[in-house]
Design a binder for these strands. Structure first.
Lengths: 252, 252
DNA sequence: TCAAAAGTGTTACATATACACCCATGT
DNA sequence: ACATGGGTGTATATGTAACACTTTTGA
């Protein structure tokens, strides 16, 4: 025991602080044109063997947090350069059977099509689960997932992150369905269209859907540069829908 | 080296994972009726001795994250039951001179008056710094502070958290000043008043200011129960002010 | 009487909401 | 022909933004 570290109310050997393990867990969301899904794998650790769990791994000592998240994501999905943001750190003392393992949760948004392509030749242990049909998960992963879903629901109203879940070219109705799945509510078609188009962040591709059993829709893509410019000028992306009400005079 | 832990692409002794240190840093915001402030102390660690730093400490092995944050806050301010929320985890590999110390940053909102009362008889090493006059801080604390300030600016528009910085009874103008300090912008008095009163979350105390060199204002307090009820009914607190603009037809 | 903040309304404009029908395509 | 989603407009209600003067108090 060498150097001492003075934390003001106790004096302890420096070495004795270095006894935590850290892991990174990714909540990987995807959208299959019908509903929001989460990518889960089967746990291999006692006492959770066989139970579904988020994808995650231990952090390496010399590894940056974001790098670990990207590594884990690539390992499980084959995908790089994916939307990936730190969400929250979960550290309940008893959350892990091996000891004090604190985990840093990330949210990832991926295009399921890309995932399917990149995992074609992988031993693929992961499965997409409908967001409303999540089983009991290993560790505290139900908590983590719930928190991250809430985060996503908030974020999707305040920033144009939903596009990370859609193919490059998409129809306005697909975008609307995405919002409906995430937020779990119906949205009026005309109002949605009006609002999203008035934002000037979608650009028509001058293409239409092919081979659909109905009138083919125009395809659009998200113009990130335009969004950035607007944002710099103080404009803020907001999508809210009439689920809320305003306070009435007579309380609630 | 006993148990092995299979993380799928490497096999490593379990013990070897438990070599991280964790700390908790609190960004403590306060408001002195004129401007937003942050509580800083002088660092005692090489190579930052004498430099200002956030208040923080090492996490103990058997300590919950929130408990550590509360402990640190109480140790430095004497205050309990303070607004305190996890903000983000910072873990750059080279951020700490002692090794891989990952820190979990918390935001605290305190009433400076309460702080002054509770620290009267403490050896008081902490000082309030004006948010626009932050010196170079120890470690990566400038990053952390910047991030947390951004977080606060966002949060204050979406949830009624500002009240945690005000005394129990306050005037509407004080509330407005608070918003102006945090957001760094002027707000129209009549519009602010109209909006905040229409929310029905303030209740008049039937008291007025005493001994002020101007017409004394009515005092209000925040009715948290009413806010909760409104929120349950789907209503959302939002305060935004005309800094933003809407996208124009001809790009930006 | 001065300084400082309290308090108060209206108008113009922009945005949000509610709502129903015909169109184009594949099967 | 039918099922499916594509695509469109308007009227109304609500919310936001801009703006100036009188009042009350302590010094």
């Amino acid at each position: 025991m060498g150097v001492k570290y003075n934390t003001d109310h106790f004096l302890q050997s420096v070495e004795s602080y270095f006894n935590f393990a850290l892991s990174v867990d990714c909540v990987v969301f995807g959208f299959d044109n019908k509903s929001l899904k989460v990518l889960l794998i089967k746990s291999k650790m006692e006492p959770y063997i066989g139970q579904w769990s988020l994808i995650g791994d231990m952090l390496q000592t010399d590894e940056e947090l974001d790098a670990a998240a990207n590594r884990i994501l690539e390992y499980r999905t084959g995908l790089k350069n994916v939307f990936l943001k730190q969400a929250k750190t979960f550290g309940r003392v008893d959350r892990h059977p091996l000891g004090r393992v604190v985990t840093i949760a990330y949210v990832a948004l991926v295009r399921i099509k890309d995932y399917e392509i990149s995992t074609e030749n992988m031993q693929n242990e992961a499965h997409w689960h409908h967001i409303n049909q999540i089983p009991e998960l290993a560790f505290d992963h139900n908590n983590i997932l719930e928190y991250c879903l809430e985060t996503l629901r908030k974020k999707v109203r305040e920033e144009p992150v939903g596009f990370a879940l859609l193919p490059d070219k998409f129809t306005i109705f697909e975008l609307q369905s995405l919002y409906e799945s995430i937020l779990n509510e119906k949205i009026d078609k005309r109002n949605f269209r009006k609002k999203i188009l008035s934002m000037q962040i979608l650009e028509p591709c001058n293409e239409t859907q092919k081979g659909v059993p109905h009138r083919p829709a125009k395809l659009y893509h998200f113009n990130r540069d335009k969004y950035k410019k607007l944002k710099q000028n103080g404009w803020v992306f907001t999508l809210k829908f009439p689920s809320g009400s305003k306070p009435s005079e007579n309380g609630v």
